[in-house]
């Protein structure tokens, strides 16, 4: 008798089909979030706040109450939701353009205040929805539509390492960077998301997961080559790991 070892999570809307480009890891990230919401049994108590960019479509796929925030303001709106209803499970889902650039103040201050919310941030080193421009996480040397000869320090400055920065904030309870480049790392990514969610449920403070993801369309790469880039370039600079976990430090 065969046992089922994989299914579409019940938290995914019936007949919902992801609208991301072929091979985009956003779909994996959305599935992992959906799986964690299901396994923790919090889906019917969840209010998600979705940041503008490719990420915002998560509310079309996961069967949950959701609020769409202006670009960069998802963490602020999530703060409002949580302060109004402290018993709700509240998380934000946004891209690096939203979180690390226009919304950096909101993310950092939520971390400093120790807001009991979780932020998931997709880092694909570009503004995907608008066609692949240079963003706050664009890597040195990376060619984008607004860095046609590659990102150089003199002209564009440096990319930001989010997980490390957020970990430095005293109100942060959990900060991690994970990658979706391999099946093994996808499993680690799920563990991190679940941990971040659990940290919120325990009321320990702000929890944050940065997910290294691909943008095959704007990188002008096959999905396969895109994963090689994640391994060979991104993970060398944006090193995966758990940068803060108060549950371990407290042991």
């Amino acid at each position: 008798m065969a046992t089922q070892v994989f299914k579409i999570p019940n938290t995914i809307k019936k007949d919902a089909k992801f609208t991301f480009c072929p091979g985009c890891d956003h779909g994996v990230a959305v599935r992992l979030v959906a799986e964690c919401l299901e396994e923790l049994g919090v889906i019917d108590n969840t209010i998600a706040v979705c940041g503008i960019g490719c990420s915002v479509t998560i509310y079309d796929f996961i069967d949950m109450d959701a609020l769409e925030a202006p670009h960069g303001r998802s963490v602020a709106e999530a703060t409002g939701v949580k302060r109004a209803k402290p018993d709700k499970f509240v998380f934000t889902y946004s891209g690096d353009g939203d979180y690390a650039s226009i919304g950096l103040a909101e993310g950092m201050h939520a971390a400093l205040r120790g807001e009991k919310i979780t932020s998931i941030c997709i880092n694909n080193t570009t503004y995907g929805m608008t066609g692949g421009q240079l963003g706050p996480t664009t890597m040195l040397g990376q060619v984008t539509t607004t860095s046609p000869t590659g990102r150089n320090i003199e002209y564009y400055g440096y990319p930001i390492k989010l997980a490390e920065h957020i970990a430095l904030c005293d109100g942060t309870a959990f900060s991690a960077r994970v990658s979706l480049d391999t099946v093994a790392n996808i499993k680690k990514a799920k563990q991190a998301i679940k941990k971040a969610f659990e940290v919120q449920l325990k009321g320990l403070g702000y929890s944050f997961v940065e997910i290294l993801s691909t943008c095959p369309t704007n990188w002008r790469m096959t999905p396969d080559k895109a994963h090689e880039r994640v391994q060979n370039e991104m993970m060398q600079v944006f090193k995966p790991g758990i940068y803060k976990d108060v549950t371990v430090e407290n042991v």
Binding site: A2, T3, Q4, V5, I8, G27, V183, I186
Partner: peptide
Amino acid sequence: TRCPDLAISEVYR
């Protein structure tokens, strides 16, 4: 686990 689009919708072992 790898599929980004839930196209491999069920797995049995």
